[in-house]
Simulated scan of single mutants.
Amino acid sequence: MPKGSLNSILFTGSSKSKRKVVDWKTRFEIALGTARGLLYLHEECRDHIIHCDVKPESILLDGDLSPNLVDFWLAKLVGRDFSHVPTTTRGTRGYLAPEWISGLPITPKVDVYSFGTTLLEIISGRRNLDLKVQDSSLFYFPPWLATQIQQGNTMNIVEEGVAEEANMEEVRSLCVVALLCIQEDEEVRPSMMQVVQMLEGKMEPQTP
Rank of each mutant, 00 (worst) to 15 (best):
D185W: 12
V70I: 06
L119E: 12
H48W: 05
G161V: 00
F72C: 06
C45I: 10
P98E: 08
P2L: 08
G33W: 00
S83C: 10
I149T: 01
S114Y: 10
Q150M: 03
V54G: 01
F28H: 15
V85F: 02
T12V: 15
S124M: 01
R27D: 03
D111M: 01
S124C: 03
H42L: 03
M192Y: 03
L131Y: 13
G103K: 11
R93E: 14
Q151G: 00
L10G: 05
V176M: 06
T89K: 13
E187Y: 15
M203H: 10
L74P: 07
T92P: 00
L174D: 13
Q183I: 13
F11A: 05
T207D: 14
L180D: 10
Q148G: 04
G201I: 07
H48L: 13
E187M: 11
F141N: 00
L69N: 03
V177F: 07
T89W: 09
Q206E: 12
S8Y: 15
S14Q: 09
A163W: 00
E159P: 01
P86T: 05
I30M: 12
G125Q: 01
T34Y: 05
S136M: 04
D135S: 02
V112R: 09
V158I: 04
Q148R: 08
I157D: 02
V112P: 08
S17A: 12
I59N: 04
D81T: 09
L145R: 00
F11Q: 02
M155Y: 04
Q134L: 11
V70R: 05
S14I: 02
L119I: 02
E200C: 11
L96P: 15
P2A: 02
K18S: 12
T88G: 08
S102A: 10
T207Y: 14
G94P: 11
T92D: 06
I50L: 01
D130P: 01
T26Y: 00
V112N: 07
N128F: 03
I9Q: 07
M192D: 02
W100S: 12
S66D: 05
T117H: 07
A163G: 10
Q206H: 10
A75K: 11
M192A: 02
V112Q: 12
V54D: 02
T34F: 04
I149A: 00
P98L: 03
V177S: 03
L104E: 14
L69S: 06
I122Y: 07
S15G: 15
S102K: 15
V188Q: 11
G91F: 04
G94V: 01
I157S: 07
L74V: 11
L77W: 14
R46C: 12
D23M: 08
V85P: 01
D130F: 04
M203L: 14
L96T: 02
V54E: 07
M192N: 01
L180N: 13
K76E: 06
L199W: 01
C52L: 13
L119K: 09
L39Q: 11
Q134S: 06
P56G: 09
G116R: 10
A178C: 10
R126H: 11
G116V: 08
L174Q: 15
P105Y: 06
